[in-house]
């Protein structure tokens, strides 16, 4: 993989407001190539909003967000920033995979069709090529028997694994996970975390919003605790989890651990 910059993700003083409500109040953090970062924090602290900003699903109001050295959502014109055209923004999103809490699979398409849709339509891969690759990816997430199943016929865990395969099919350089296991029955959480663990081992750069502290401790390279729109504390997962420095972190961890 060609790397344009030292970091995969650089957030520099990122601000985001919805009307008068400031949700992100200056987020600064770096994610290295191949790093797995877990983002934790109480509900409403802005974790989802921050992930969506990285993918330009939300427009940043202040600061800079760079993915692989490329400014997200804007063109840097020296003094001024120019908003990107929708097609240019779509081009940036291709390289960033996103997995949603509610899977958001396309219900009118089978598992395999879900996976090959974007490679064929967006990346202009040939149909046969996309299908070979799609089957590979579905097999990789343990769904080699479910190519032709519609999402409604799959369990939540299977749906989320299809969603991961669908995102991987675009060969992203960065994967964003927004509480990928929160909508799952407890007994199905493991199969999704297994896939993510394997993905992390393969060297994928990942930002994972999660409440699964066990996964964070075991898999993540770094843990970031966010509260009320700011990064309160970050560091090695074991350190932050075992020895939190801030009261807010301690209070939060005492509730989730």
């Amino acid at each position: 993989m060609t790397t344009n910059s030292q970091f995969m993700v650089q957030a520099q003083n990122v601000h985001k407001s919805f009307g008068a409500h400031e949700v992100l109040k200056g987020i600064t953090l770096n994610v290295a190539h191949g790093e797995v970062m877990c983002l934790v924090g109480p509900s409403g602290s802005g974790k989802s909003t921050f992930l969506r900003c990285i993918n330009h699903l939300e427009v940043v109001n202040g600061g800079r967000l760079l993915v692989d050295g490329e400014l997200i959502g804007y063109r840097d014109g020296g003094e001024k920033l120019f908003e990107l055209k929708a097609s240019e923004a779509a081009l940036q999103r291709r390289d960033i995979g996103m997995v949603f809490q509610k899977f958001n699979l396309f219900p009118h398409l089978t598992a395999l069709e879900n996976v090959v849709e974007a490679p064929i339509r967006v990346k202009k891969l040939s149909r046969s090529e996309a299908i070979v690759r799609g089957k590979e990816l579905l097999a990789r997430v343990g769904l080699e028997t479910k190519f032709d199943a519609y999402p409604a016929h799959l369990s939540g865990g299977q749906q989320q694994r299809v969603a991961i395969a669908r995102a991987l099919a675009m060969d992203p350089k960065l994967m964003l996970f927004d509480e990928p296991t929160s909508a799952l029955d407890p007994e199905l959480v493991g199969e999704v975390l297994d896939v993510m663990r394997e993905l992390a081992k393969s060297g994928m750069t990942m930002i994972v919003v999660t409440h699964e502290m066990g996964f964070a401790r075991e898999v993540a390279d770094s843990l970031v605790f966010m509260d009320n729109g700011v990064v309160v504390e970050s560091g090695k997962p074991a350190e932050v989890l075992l020895n939190p420095q801030h009261d807010r972190t301690k209070a939060f961890l005492s509730k989730v651990l």
């Binding site: 779509a90 999103r93 960033i96 996103m98 958001n104």
Partner: peptide
């Protein structure tokens, strides 16, 4: 059609027209 469908299409790099044609309208 659930809003998440458009978001998922967007996140895959689909433009607005493509996501309408292939994802939203069929549903």
């Amino acid at each position: 059609v659930d809003r998440g469908q458009e978001e998922a299409a967007k996140a895959l790099g689909m433009g607005w027209g493509l996501s309408m044609r292939r994802i939203i309208i069929p549903q």
